[in-house]
Design a protein around this nucleic acid. Sequence first.
DNA 1: AATTTACCCATCATTTTGATAGGTTTTTCT
DNA 2: AGAAAAACCTATCAAAATGATGGGTAAATT
Lengths: 131, 131
Amino acid sequence: MISTKGRYALRIMIDLASQDPESFIPLKDIAERQCISKKYLEIIIKDLVEGGLLISLSGKGGGYKLKRKPEEYTIGEIIELTEGSLAPVACLSEKAEECPRASGCVTLPLWKEYGELVHNFFYGKKLTDLL
Amino acid sequence: MISTKGRYALRIMIDLASQDPESFIPLKDIAERQCISKKYLEIIIKDLVEGGLLISLSGKGGGYKLKRKPEEYTIGEIIELTEGSLAPVACLSEKAEECPRASGCVTLPLWKEYGELVHNFFYGKKLTDLL
DNA sequence: AATTTACCCATCATTTTGATAGGTTTTTCT
DNA sequence: AGAAAAACCTATCAAAATGATGGGTAAATT
């Protein structure tokens, strides 16, 4: 299941894509429009900045804006960045050590096929598809 | 992510489908073959029995066996039963109350489309596809 | 100097996950 | 009748993830 983190991140991105892409939008505004606690969004938007999806500016007149053009973002990169992974099972996660059962695992091909399906679905959708 | 519960349930089903479908297989044997704690499997197999996927028999000579023919099970029903839901987001879960934002939610169609994709993938696969 | 903003750090309650432990009942076999 | 083997039932647990909240600091603008 996609958690609030990934879902809220997507809503942040959609919100920013709906505003003037040149100006910095304060998080307060996003939080109010989206009806989500600003404090909670701080944690999430941090990932988006560190992941290189957004640019931030401190101080009065500051806020956040998209780093690239809206049509250049895929849903996949947003979800994957904030959820940590798009892998459907633990053993296919990047940080998982090689499973000793892998070579004889009957279910592994299923998880791999599923993982590819999910990956292709989300990376095949652009942020602008939701606008 | 599919948790151990769903994954182990699938392995139980595969294990049983690989044995004589007429005889009752003790959980002890399944646990040993699959290298999973029998105690933990007890919890999981309970769901499979209550969900009507397996038949159990107590006492000496007892154990578990498939209720239907192996080719009559979909991966989807096994995963959905043991994971509780196949819904990709909380608001599409069966037990979720109607979201007040639903009518204007920009992301809902995405989650619905994703949910259908996942559903069709797993319900389109039979247990015997993994044998 | 005041204001507005991002940013940083800690803490928290609740739920989920992944189990373990021990006892009771049911059934069959000798 | 009794031993053995199995399911079944209840409770508990530690660790991690989830979904936040609170308070304070640094940066930039007016």
